[in-house]
Amino acid sequence: MNDFLTFAMNVVALGLPLVLAALGGLVSERSGIMNIALEGKLLGAACATSLVAASTGSPILGLGAGLLTATILSLGLVWLTQSLRIDHVVAGMAINLISLGGTNFAAKALIDQNQLSGAPTLAKEMYWGLGVLAAVVIIVGFARTRPGLHLFAVGEDPHKSRQMGLSPIRVRVGALLTTGILCGLGGALILTNAGGFTDGMTAGRGFIALAAVILAGWRPGAAVAAALAFGAIEALRIQLQGAPVFGVEIPTEAWASLPYIATLIALTGFLGKTSPPAGLGRI
């Protein structure tokens, strides 16, 4: 029983950053902006949280910096794709590169590593509460509120939405603002879980979150479930420590690849056909 409790706690701890990032990705993609830059936002947020918390000694300022960084990167994606009309994939990839390079730079150039690992952080339980709240708000908001309907409509067809008096750009700015905040929380939580910043510490979690969005067919409830499932896989991997399952030794890399393999299988459509928002990525 005790084992199970540890496992459950691990699932929440490992799954929640994925839930937050997946919800962020979902809101963005539902508005029509393809978001392969979740990884960059998580990493940027984790780095900024750590830097500011370490240098000011205030975990709240740290979290604020994390939220701000992720939001700037997120709104940057709106600017790049909507005002400069850069391809969504190109813009997202560039943001990832800039974030990866920038955090490497900032962490190495500004502060020595010891100080970074000693950054004060807020209680994990606070993030857990915020994560649950975000999930509920988004699931309910999608189904039952005006912004939810507008988000869906703009992602499907911005042109027709404009004809119906909506402002697609306003909807998208709102959506990506939400994405920024969620990714900021996710990044700060990853940092809190780890205790200190290390180069490239998000280790592909932004891509796992994206995988959860796709696996879930762009539906919020399913995205939360998929993100938690991926968290469970990770927890299982840690718990097993490479120990054999039913007599078969499964390398830790195979466990880590499972979310990606599941997503590839989902893309074949054999598990049931889901379709992305019709206007996704089309300026």
Partner: peptide
Amino acid sequence: GMVSQHYSIIPALTTLDNLMLGAEPSFAL
């Protein structure tokens, strides 16, 4: 109000949501 030749109906939305879109009576639907 205008009806364009190719209609401004979004296929993925329900008929009711298409009817309300842009003119929802309240924040909570």
